[in-house]
Amino acid sequence: MKGNTLITGVTGNLGRLVLNNLLEEYSSDQQLSILVRDINKATDFKNIGITVYVGDYNNYDSLVSAFKNIDNLYFVSGNDIVNRTKQHENVIGAAKEAGVKHVVYTSFIRENETETSPIARIAHSHLKTENWLKNSGIDYTILKHTIYADFIPMFLGENFLETGIAYLPAGEGKNSFVTRNDMAEVGAKILTSLEAHKNKEYNIVNENTISFRDIVSQISEITGKPIQYISPTQLEYIETLTKSGVPKDYIGMFTGFAEAFKQEEFIKTGTTIQSLIGRKPTSINEFLTQVYQK
C-alpha cells in the first residue's frame, strides 16, 4: 500500500472492519486516513493516530478538500438510496479533481441490469458509478459484492424463532451470501496490493448458493426449534407487513429484495475470495451457527 490511503464509511460497519484489518497488518507509521461527516465521531480514531478528514458525500467542495492529499480511496457506497446517485457523482468528480490515483469502489453483483430488475432502484446508482469511475482516468478496482449474509436475520424478521414461521416471498431461489467480515478482509487485502488489482473488477461471492428454505432448515437444526418457511405472494406479503405497521419504504425494500432472491439475482459463485485472502469464505452454516447458537 503506497501513499496515503483514505477509508470512507468508518463510522458504519464495512469501512470500520476494513480499517481494523489494515491496522492489524500495518505499523503505526502507515499513512492511513478516514473520512467522517461529523468530527465528534472521530475521537477514537484520532486517539490511535489515524488522520481524520471531514467531508460529506452531499458536499462536493468538502470532498475535494478531504481528498487533496490522498493517493488511494476506499469508497464505500452510500446508503441514502434517494440521493446516492448524485452523492457518488460528487465522490468520483472530487477524487478526479483532487488527483486521487486509485479508487476501490464497493459495488454489487447482479444478473439483470435493466429497469425490469426488482432492485433496479438500488442498482441504478451502482451502474452509473461504475461507468463514471471507468471514464474518470483514475485507476480503479470494482468490488461487486453479493448480498451480505449479515442481512439474513433482518429478512427473516425479529420474531420468527418465537412464532415458528419464517415469512418471506423469496420462493425457492438460490443466492450467494458473503459475510461482511469476509468482504472487509477482501477490501483490506486489495488495498495492500493495489498494483496487482489496477483496473480490475471482482465478483465478491461465495462458492455455494442457498435458498431461504434451506437457511430456515439450518436455523431450525441449530436452535432445535421447529420453523416453517412460508413464501407468500408479493401482495399477501405487502398486506401483512402493512397491517403490522411496517413503514412503506421498508416494505418496498424487503419486497424488492425478496423478489430478487426469488429471481436469483445473486446466484453468481466463484473462488475469488479464496484466491485473494487465502481461505474459503465463511459458509452460511458457520455464519448461522455464530448468530443463532446459544
Results as ranks from 00 to 15, higher is better:
Glu185Gln: 09
Gly137Asp: 12
Pro281Arg: 06
His88Asp: 12
Ser62Thr: 06
Asn159Arg: 10
Pro153Phe: 03
Ile48Pro: 02
Asn112Cys: 11
Asn181Tyr: 15
Val103Arg: 00
Phe151Leu: 10
Thr116Asn: 15
Asp80Glu: 09
Leu156Trp: 02
Ile81Thr: 12
Lys189Gln: 14
Glu259Arg: 10
Phe177His: 03
Tyr202Lys: 00
Ile267Val: 15
Leu288Cys: 15
Leu191Met: 15
Ala170His: 08
Gly187Ala: 15
Leu17Tyr: 08
Gly224Lys: 03
Lys101Cys: 11
Val186Tyr: 04
Gly173Gln: 08
Val186Asn: 03
Lys96Phe: 06
Thr269Ala: 05
Thr114Met: 13
Leu35Gln: 15
Tyr167Cys: 01
Glu25Ala: 13
Arg84Leu: 10
Tyr53Asn: 13
Asn40Tyr: 03
Lys144Phe: 05
Ala149Leu: 03
Leu168Pro: 08
Asn40Lys: 15
Gly9Glu: 01
Asn199Trp: 09
Ile219Arg: 02
Pro118Tyr: 07
Asn199Ala: 09
Gly99Pro: 01
Leu32Ile: 14
Ser117Arg: 09
Leu161Tyr: 04
Val54Ser: 12
Val178Tyr: 00
Phe257Leu: 10
Val205Arg: 00
Ile277Pro: 04
Glu162Arg: 08
Met183Tyr: 02
Ile165Glu: 15
Asn83Thr: 14
Phe287Thr: 09
Tyr202Pro: 00
Ile50Thr: 13
Tyr148Ser: 08
Asn131Phe: 06
Asp29His: 12
His102Arg: 00
Thr209Leu: 02
Thr116Val: 13
Thr209Ile: 08
Glu113Tyr: 11
Arg84Pro: 05
Gly55Cys: 02
Ser211Asn: 06
Lys96His: 11
Leu22Ala: 06
Val104Thr: 12
Val64Met: 10
Ile215Cys: 06
Glu207Val: 03
Gly187Ser: 15
Glu286Thr: 13
Thr223Trp: 02
Tyr237Lys: 11
Ile227Asn: 04
Ala258Gly: 05
Ala123Tyr: 09
Ser107Ala: 09
Tyr53Gly: 07
Glu286Asn: 12
Glu113Gln: 11
Ile34Leu: 10
His102Thr: 07
Trp132Tyr: 13
Leu194Thr: 04
Glu24Phe: 07
Val10Arg: 00
Lys96Ser: 15
Phe177Met: 01
Asn40Val: 14
Lys200Arg: 13
Lys86Asn: 12
Glu130Ala: 10
Asp80Leu: 02
Tyr167Lys: 04
Tyr229Cys: 13
Asn20Ala: 15
Val178Ala: 09
Lys2Ile: 13
Leu143Trp: 01
Lys248Gly: 04
Glu286Lys: 05
Leu241Tyr: 10
Glu185Asp: 13
Phe266Glu: 02
Tyr229Phe: 14
Ala258Arg: 01
Ala120Pro: 05
Ala98Ser: 15
Tyr148Trp: 08
Thr242Glu: 13
Thr223Arg: 03
Gln31Lys: 14
Leu288Ala: 14
Asn199Gln: 07
Ile147Met: 07
Val178Lys: 01
Gly137Tyr: 00
Asp150Asn: 08
Gly15Val: 02
Glu113His: 09
Leu161Asp: 05
Asp71Thr: 04
Pro153Gly: 06
Val246Ile: 11
Phe254Met: 05
Gln30Gly: 09
Lys262Val: 08
Ile222Cys: 08
Lys128Leu: 14
Glu185Pro: 03
Phe261Ala: 10
Met183Glu: 07
Thr106Lys: 04
Gly256Pro: 01
Glu185Gly: 10
Val64Thr: 12
Ile204Asn: 07
Asn47Val: 05
Gly15Phe: 03
Val104Trp: 02
Ser65Ala: 06
